[in-house]
């Protein structure tokens, strides 16, 4: 049933309608992992851990040790929560790769590259949360050690950009390759993805500057890349849902087409044969 030029999921789903329904729900659930991830991460990171805005890069070791000891329980709970929340990015990024594979066909490269880069991003979200947890583990220890682990976490947060950019570049290239009538990423969305890929790169300056806009708590080091990342991925989440609705419409239209001859043959039985939503 699948139209080769259209690349829709018609014919991809299981032949058993029950199984196909489950597959579709799973697909949708994986897309919805993104908003759930974003909201739960924000809750654990902002009010509970108090990591937004981040502790400043130019704080003394003692000041930083105080930041940790003042909110020990909140930081521990918040970081564990954000670890679980950030793991939800993986299902979402996997749907992105699955959609890319539909664009690319069997000889697919962008989809696995995006997936691999996404794995690195999610892995480091886990790793840096653990480093910050180490900072909070023994409040009495040498403040310099606390600061070193804290430094590591925030430097990764701002500078681990290359694979993050790669994800957005893969999405942009896939968007430009998409020749189907209703592409997932319209061309403007591909340009947005390129822009996000480049904008995030401003974070690398955090290693040179301990204060001001380019430090890890500055506007270029923190706010713009974080907001651009969240906004860019949210855009893709909306576009993936839109693509899913479009394919459901195609599927309904196909079902209607195959039902039409039946209408001609057995006109009395016809109305019950047309699936709901086809008209």
């Amino acid at each position: 049933m699948r139209d080769a030029t259209d690349g829709s999921t018609i014919g991809f789903w299981d032949d058993n309608p029950q199984a196909a329904l489950f597959q579709k729900r799973l697909w949708k659930a994986c897309i919805y992992c993104w908003p759930v991830c974003l909201i739960t991460f924000l809750i654990f990171f902002l009010p509970i851990a108090g990591f937004i805005p981040p502790p400043k890069e130019n704080w003394s070791a003692d000041r930083l040790a105080e930041f940790y000891s003042d909110n020990l329980t909140g930081i521990r709970i918040g970081l564990i929560g954000s670890m679980f929340a950030s793991a939800l990015m993986l299902p979402f990024f996997t749907v992105i790769s699955a959609e890319m594979k539909k664009i690319e066909g069997r000889m697919s490269l962008l989809a696995p590259i995006q997936f691999g880069a996404a794995m690195i991003l999610v892995a480091f979200f886990q790793i840096i949360a653990l480093f910050w947890l180490v900072s909070s583990l023994r409040p009495g220890r040498d403040p310099e050690v606390i600061r070193a682990f804290n430094d590591y976490g925030w430097l990764v947060w701002t500078i681990l950009i290359p694979t993050y950019s790669l994800q957005f570049i893969c999405m942009a290239v896939a968007g430009f390759m998409d020749r189907r009538p209703e592409p997932i990423w319209p061309r403007w969305a591909s340009y947005v993805n390129i822009w996000v890929a480049i904008t995030g790169a401003g974070g690398v300056l955090a290693v040179f500057f301990h204060s001001g806009p380019f430090s890890w708590n500055g506007i270029m080091g923190y706010w713009i890349p974080v907001i651009a990342f969240a906004a860019g991925m949210s855009m893709t989440a909306v576009l993936l849902l839109r693509r899913m609705r479009y394919e459901e419409g195609l599927e309904a239209a196909t079902a209607e087409e195959s039902a039409t001859p039946a209408v001609a043959r057995r006109s009395s039985a016809a109305p019950t044969q047309v699936p709901a939503g086809a008209s």
């Binding site: 049933m1 139209d3 030029t5 259209d6 009538p181 209703e182 479009y246 419409g249 195609l250 239209a253 196909t254 087409e257």
Partner: peptide, 10 residues
Amino acid sequence: MSTITRAADE
């Protein structure tokens, strides 16, 4: 099939 695709697109 192709006509349907086009109609859905429009």
